Simulated assay, not measured.
Amino acid sequence: MVDGDGLGIAGVDEVGRGCLFGPVFAAAVVLSDQAAAHLQAAGLTDSKALTPRRRAALVPLIEEHAQAWGLGQSSARAIDHYGIRTATEQAMLCALQRLPSRPQLVLVDGVLPLRLWAGSQRTIVRGDSSHAAIAAASVLAKEARDALLRRLSHRFPGYGLERHAGYGTAQHRAALLAAGPTPLHRHSFLRKLFATG
């Protein structure tokens, strides 16, 4: 996971923040300038702009060329208990703690600072489009979460988790209204659905 002694700048991003089901995932990635250029030449950009096939192909390249990387997640239960922002920050902190040493600077995608991080940080709006380390983190988090949701779709059939990854699509909402939520749904996110449904 690490090449060399010290870590410079880590990019951090999350995925699944707006889902109705399952955990929120985060990843932290440290890239050298050379690795960033190599990955961008291979097509690295914001995970939302990539096809599933391209994202999957980038994962082993990121894992091979990154100085370090780590993954973290917060469960649906934690989201219900602490709220989505705190749970997302816990997932990001977990990803950073999985790095072999503390980075000098953390680049956080978005506008909200990582309140749980005591070190230096900078928030960057649309950072996953402008910073390779954040883009790499978005790819790793997205692929890890999607893989988990595909596995969970076998445990909870009928909700279409393998297709929408837990987001509130019409199919997902219809299944919720017909069958009710599973233990891994974010019950705090469903109050409005069931109140109006």
Rank of each mutant, 00 (worst) to 15 (best):
A78G: 04
D5Q: 11
L190C: 05
R145A: 11
L114R: 05
L112P: 00
A35I: 02
L71F: 06
A56V: 00
E64L: 07
P103C: 09
R173Y: 00
T169G: 02
A27T: 10
Q40A: 01
A135S: 15
G166H: 06
Y82M: 02
R186P: 13
L58M: 02
G158Y: 15
S74N: 12
A178M: 07
I62W: 02
L96M: 08
V106R: 10
S138E: 07
L20P: 09
G197P: 06
C94I: 01
G4F: 05
R150M: 08
R115Q: 12
A26D: 06
V2K: 10
H81C: 13
H131N: 04
T45N: 10
K192W: 06
S101R: 09
S47N: 13
G83I: 06
R102P: 01
I124F: 06
I124M: 11
H164M: 01
A118H: 09
A28S: 10
D5S: 14
R163Y: 01
F189T: 12
D3K: 15
R102V: 08
F194K: 07
S130R: 06
R150C: 12
R163H: 04
L31I: 11
G110W: 14
P181Y: 00
W117R: 03
G70N: 01
A174I: 00
P23I: 13
G4H: 07
A137E: 14
A41R: 07
K142C: 14
H65R: 12
A175L: 06
M1W: 04
A76F: 07
L193Y: 05
D13I: 10
G8K: 03
A170P: 00
A165V: 14
A35H: 11
L114V: 11
L140F: 14
L184W: 05
S120T: 02
P100C: 02
L148M: 15
A141T: 09
V12F: 08
E162W: 06
R115K: 12
I134F: 12
L149D: 01
E89L: 03
H65N: 13
W117A: 04
A57W: 04
Q40E: 13
G158M: 11
R77P: 00
D109T: 14
L31F: 08
